[in-house]
Structures are given as C-alpha cells and as structure tokens.
Amino acid sequence: MTEPLPRSPRSVWLARLWLALAILFFVLPILYLLSTSFKAPDDVLQGRFFPTDPTLANYPAAFGHVPVASMIRNSVLVSILSAAITLLLTVPATYAMVKLGFMRTIIPNITLASYVAPPVIALIPLFFLMQRVHLIDTIAGLALVYGIMNIPVAFWLLRSFVRAIPDEIDEAAWIDGASYWRTLVRIALPLLVPGIVATALICIILSYNELLFASSMTFGESSRTITVGMSLFQGERLVNFGQMAAASFAGMVPVYVIAVFFQRYLIGGLTQGSVK
C-alpha cells in the first residue's frame, strides 16, 4: 500500500464534491425505486420524485400478486448452488492450467470466445438438453446452467489469484511428496480463500440478476426466480409500477447485503491483477 501524497484542502474538497456527485448519480435510480414503491398508481403517473400521499399498500399487494418471498428464496438457492458448481469446476481447472501448464494456451481462448458470444445462442440447445435430462423447471437445472455459464468469468477472476501464489510454494509441496491434488487442497486452497470468496460473490450476483435463462427455463412457483417475478408485473395493458417497485426493492436486498458485508472481497476480486 502506498502512502497518500500530500494534498491541498481545496483539492480534497473538490474530490469530495466529485465523489458525492458520482454517488448521487448511481444512487438516484434506487432512491426513485424506493420512492415509487410508496406511491399509489395515480401518483406514479404524476412523475414526481417524492410520493404525494405515501402508502405501504404496494408491499402486501406485491407479495400477494406474485409469490415474491418464495421467488427470492429460489433466487438465493439457485445463485448459491450455481456458484458452488462454478467453483467446484473452475478452481481445479484454473490451478491445473496455471501451475501445471495444462492446456495453457487453449483454455483462456475458449473461455473468452464462449463468454463474448451472445447468451441467447445457447438458449434453445440448453432448453432441449435440460428437458432431456428432466431438469427443466427445477432449481437444480437452472443452477447447473448458471454454474456452467459463469465458468469463464470465474476462470478470469481466479487466474490472477492462482498466479499470485509463488510457484516455489507449490514446487516445495511437490518435492515434499504431496500429490498435485493434495497440494491444491492443502496448500493452494487456503491461500486462495480471498480469491474464492470474491469469485463466489461475483458469480452469486451474476446468477441472481440473470433473467433470460430463468424466464425460459422456469415456469412454476417452485423454481421461478425473483427476476422473472419482477417481469410478471408487466401486464398486457397495464404496468403496476408501485407494486413492481416494491417487489424489485425487496428482491434487491440480498444482493445489497452481499455488497455491503463483503465489500472488501468484492473489490479485491475485481481489482486483482491490475497492480502487482
């Protein structure tokens, strides 16, 4: 960590002002969402920022209209399960590639290529595959799809964490007689914990926010996720913005809890490898 350089009070205040504006820019939509969740339908159409006659009615109505609570539960389950699948596959694969040179040139290219392709391409084949193995409309099925879908992201994040472990540490373990698996589990994994946590959080957030696959592969209350739930408020002729805002706000809570409590790991995950 470098020491902060001396700065004049004026530039400090300017920096603070700039930061405040930037934060406002990002927070404003969420505040608007929160405010809308307390507005009656007519009030929403006025387009004012603050509700003229605040009401709590949207919340029970939203939870009554669609099963928001069970959808949030489904989302949380799918995201955690999918992150587990992603890590179970990606951690050993990344270790083997970085430390043992296994398919060192091919894997980064394949993962990048598969990640830049539009996800909708995979939708129809995956749908039929899932149907064939009877995993359509199940939490396990959706978690499997997300688990595989997030592998490229997890790989690119984890790669820099694995690289940060000095090669000599692995080599010392091999010379000490430890097999490659044992070295991974006993030596590398404990050192990778911050990277694994960061990667898990990012995978959880990506899965939690996913809509395309969720809307095509889940149909029933037992498997639908909250992102699908929010889209259900959009009727043929009428959009109930107040209830939608209430459901959205409730659905956001788990992700924000993660962001607030695991900030340190998240920032570590996103900036790892940017500086030596």
């Binding site: 000095p166 000599e168 080599e171 010392a172 373990a173 091999w174 010379i175 097999s179 030596i187």
Partner: peptide, 20 residues
C-alpha cells in the same frame, strides 16, 4: 519420475515456506 517420487529436499531462494 515426478518430483514427488524422487524423495529429495530442496531449499529455495525465497524459502517457499507454506505461509498459512
């Protein structure tokens, strides 16, 4: 033979102790 099967000991320049 892989390093595991040669039964050697090695001291590295940066010591390579297991930090955890």
């Amino acid at each position: 033979l892989p390093p595991q099967e040669r039964n050697l000991s090695m001291v590295f320049q940066n010591y390579a102790l297991y930090p955890h």
